[in-house]
Design a protein around this nucleic acid. Structure first.
Lengths: 165, 165
DNA sequence: TTAAATGCAAAGCTTTTGCAATACT
DNA sequence: AGTATTGCAAAAGCTTTGCATTTAA
């Protein structure tokens, strides 16, 4: 239960700026590394390591999965990338400052709603007040039922089987 | 990303009542099954399948891990057991109605705070009002920083490395 | 008796690690 | 040239599945 520690967020305007940031820290800009960053910058949603390795559905050449993981780890240490978890299943990665933000994930249908930046401040403030707890929803999102699944839940009464998240 | 569907919660007073519930549904009360239930009833916190198989630190005889998983799955379908996730790492299981409740998990030190039943109603209500979202914190808890780690975070400024959850 | 449940082994999925070969600076 | 990074293979951690055998009812 330990994950690669990330340093302070490093927000960058684009792939090129990211490359500069890498070189500035003595890291190299290899083809595989470039691929990972390009896929992440092109992605509109957080993507899994597997999706990155697959080249985001064939758009870009594939890369070794182990290298992808190693790169994601380094980029995360650098503060350029973060990862989060949409329930069960593989972790998903995103560029810090893009595809970023916090999510509400439906545990029945798997749908997600991205919350605008600051949209959870109210919730965080209340958790701070009630429990002196500094909640963070950027790594483990808020899970529950989306409006339509919640409606379905009412029909069927309490409980009921489901199959997601 | 699919997990065994659970039916309506089935709250039971003790191991014996659980056995009755099993038999009432045509399920058998085998030694392994008994073990799983006994460990869960004895546990004060949710425990992993591995801990159950190990007999909760030697208190009870060990059992096959695959059987433990199969039993947990069936007991969860029955509504007697639930499972949740304290961050990365194995899922943890608890008897419904005991060791139950909702948790706040610290992503730095791994500590957890159990919230009294209903203690998150305010939060849930607010999420309902703001996003029409029916949040559930019983399967994926609220993750963030506990008071002491939050303090440590201030000292070190934004970001900073961590190593847990 | 007979279907549910077990034990063991094997596999699945996500992620990590070792190591010799490669390629960025 | 020197070392960060790669590719491949293997392993680790959690969970599921197949199957012949046992066992509760």
């Amino acid at each position: 239960v330990t994950y690669s520690h990330a340093s302070a967020p490093l927000v960058v305007t684009g792939v090129d700026a990211a490359f500069d940031a890498l070189r500035a820290r003595g890291l190299r800009v290899s083809a595989a590394r470039r691929l990972v960053l390009e896929v992440l910058f092109a992605a509109e949603e957080p993507v899994s390591a597997d999706q990155i390795a697959a080249g985001l559905r064939g758009r870009v050449p594939a890369s070794d999965l182990a290298s992808v993981y190693r790169n994601l780890e380094r980029l995360e240490e650098l503060g350029l990338v973060r990862h989060l978890h949409f329930g069960h299943g593989p972790g998903v990665y995103a560029i810090v400052g893009r595809g970023d933000g916090e999510y509400l994930v439906c545990e029945w249908c798997g749908s997600r709603r991205a919350v605008e930046p600051g949209g959870l401040e109210d919730i965080r403030g209340r958790l701070r007040a009630l429990f002196d707890w500094e909640a963070r929803f950027s790594h483990f999102p808020i899970v529950g039922l989306c409006p339509s699944c919640a409606g379905r839940a009412d029909e069927r009464g309490r409980g009921g089987s489901h199959a997601h998240t």
